[in-house]
Simulated scan of single mutants.
Amino acid sequence: MSNNLGMDVRKSPRSRCRLDSKIHYFQQQADARVINISRTGLALELATKLTAAAGSQVTIENEDIGHLEGVVRWNYGGRIGIMFRPNSNSIAKVAAYFRNYHQEVRPVLRG
Score class of each variant (00 low, 15 high):
37 I>S: 01
36 N>T: 00
40 T>W: 00
47 A>Q: 12
22 K>E: 03
13 P>Y: 02
75 N>T: 06
109 L>A: 04
61 E>M: 15
14 R>M: 09
54 A>K: 06
60 I>F: 07
91 I>Q: 07
96 A>F: 03
22 K>T: 08
35 I>M: 10
81 G>F: 09
103 Q>Y: 03
5 L>A: 14
16 R>D: 05
37 I>R: 01
23 I>R: 02
65 I>Y: 07
36 N>K: 01
88 S>F: 04
19 L>F: 07
100 N>G: 06
105 V>F: 11
74 W>L: 06
83 M>H: 11
4 N>M: 00
46 L>E: 08
39 R>D: 05
93 K>L: 14
79 R>F: 06
97 Y>C: 13
93 K>M: 12
30 A>L: 07
58 V>R: 11
38 S>P: 12
56 S>N: 14
100 N>H: 13
49 K>C: 09
45 E>I: 10
70 G>P: 00
45 E>F: 08
107 P>K: 14
26 F>M: 11
29 Q>P: 01
85 R>Y: 01
102 H>G: 04
23 I>G: 03
105 V>G: 07
39 R>N: 08
111 G>S: 11
66 G>Y: 04
43 A>L: 15
44 L>D: 10
71 V>C: 04
72 V>I: 15
13 P>W: 00
52 A>E: 04
90 S>M: 02
92 A>M: 06
6 G>Y: 00
2 S>V: 10
72 V>P: 03
8 D>I: 11
76 Y>V: 15
82 I>F: 03
56 S>T: 12
34 V>F: 10
43 A>N: 15
63 E>S: 10
89 N>A: 11
47 A>G: 05
55 G>H: 03
61 E>H: 13
72 V>Y: 09
9 V>T: 14
96 A>V: 07
38 S>L: 10
41 G>S: 14
10 R>I: 00
84 F>R: 04
103 Q>F: 06
24 H>I: 13
